[in-house]
Amino acid sequence: MTVLERLGHEVVFPAEQTCCGQMHINTGYQRAALPLIRRYVDTFEPYELIVAPSGSCVGSIGHQHAMVARRHHDEDLAQRAQAVAARTYELSQLLVDVLGVEDVGAHYPHRVTYHPTCHSLRLLAVGDRPLRLLRRVSGIDLVPLPDADVCCGFGGTFAVKNADTSTAMLADKMRNVLATRAEVCTAGDSSCLMHIGGGLSRLRAGVKTVHLAEILASTAGAGQGAPAAVSR
């Protein structure tokens, strides 16, 4: 929000919005996701461009909404969902591809490592866009994350249904984060960050998780003392 407004764009947060329904779909409750899909389409249909700060939500909107609608024989909703999904962007896609910006004028004097998150990486193919944005942030000390493209183990309800396996994957992700000696781990997905951040917090590792958008929103004189915690 702050980043986009700083770049001179008018941003609207339609209060009617709720949730994309990914959790329901990925857990098998497609019928329960239908009203959420309908609401998403109803809410965002009038807008020109839609942006979400979460790769997996954008992935669900793009890859699942129409599919679920079709499975429940609602072709009209499927077509509308497809049209809205085509205008829905993950933040780094919007900034780099649509708005043509890489330097958003941010300042963030911290050692940061970036976790690409599976759905941004594979479903949306955002590639190195987030890294291109981060490299232009002044003051940042950006360090590569070993085995960055391996899943952190979140996977929505996977983290609860298969808690042990999820934790084993998280352990390896945290080992790699800690090996970078970064003070901040960032990503374009709040859910993965909550997972990684929860693990790091439990270890009292002294590494914060901060959403990509928050780093891009930071400017000189604001929030320099300590990296902001994840909040939405």
Binding site: A159, V160, G197, G198, G199, R202, V230, R232
Partner: peptide, 23 residues
């Protein structure tokens, strides 16, 4: 059932203000 989450991870405390309220 969320206890499985906190067996190995902390959960973030909800912020004092939701984004909706901030907006």
């Amino acid at each position: 059932p969320l206890a499985a989450w906190t067996r190995a991870r902390d959960a973030p405390v909800p912020p004092p203000q939701t984004f909706r309220q901030w907006w």
